[in-house]
Computed example of a mutant assay.
Amino acid sequence: MTEIVTVTGPELVTYADELAALLVETVEEGASVGFLAPLARDDAAEWWRRRAASVETGGHQVWIAREDGRPAGTIGLARESLPNARHRAEVTKLMVRPSARGRGVGRALLGAVERSAPGQGLSLLVLDTETGSPAEALYRSAGWTECGSVPSYAMDPGGVLKATTFYYKMIGPLADRASQ
Rank of each mutant, 00 (worst) to 15 (best):
C147R: 02
A45N: 02
S123A: 13
T74K: 01
Y15A: 10
G119H: 06
R177F: 09
A31K: 13
A65Q: 02
V113G: 00
A78G: 06
E28F: 04
T164S: 15
R51S: 12
D43V: 01
D43K: 09
L122G: 07
A117K: 02
L127K: 05
A45H: 02
D156R: 10
A44N: 05
G59N: 11
T165L: 02
M95P: 00
L161Q: 04
V126M: 13
V33I: 15
S99H: 13
A45E: 04
M95S: 07
Y167A: 01
A135N: 11
S133Y: 06
V55S: 00
A137V: 15
L12C: 10
F166N: 04
T14G: 15
E90K: 14
R70K: 14
P10D: 12
A154H: 13
Y153F: 15
L125C: 04
M170K: 11
A142W: 02
D128H: 15
A53M: 07
V13F: 08
T131K: 12
A20F: 01
R107M: 00
R103D: 13
Q180F: 06
V91I: 12
A37E: 10
L22V: 13
G106M: 02
T145L: 13
V96Y: 00
A100S: 08
M95N: 03
Y139H: 04
L122R: 03
W63P: 00
R41S: 12
A163D: 14
V62C: 13
S99G: 09
V27E: 08
T74L: 01
E90S: 11
E28L: 06
E67N: 08
R97S: 14
V91F: 04
A108T: 12
T2Q: 09
R101L: 10
K162Q: 15
M95D: 04
G76C: 07
E3A: 14
G58D: 15
P10N: 14
T2L: 09
V150W: 04
L110T: 09
A137H: 11
E28P: 03
E11Q: 14
E67L: 06
Y167G: 01
G159C: 11
R79H: 10
L94D: 00
P118I: 02
G172I: 10
T92K: 02
E80G: 12
G159K: 09
P173W: 05
A163H: 10
L127T: 07
L174I: 10
V27K: 08
R50K: 11
A16G: 04
M155G: 04
S32H: 11
T164F: 12
P157E: 07
D176C: 12
G30K: 11
T74E: 03
E28C: 08
P71G: 02
G143L: 09
L127S: 02
P38K: 11
L19V: 12
A45Q: 11
S116P: 06
V55N: 02
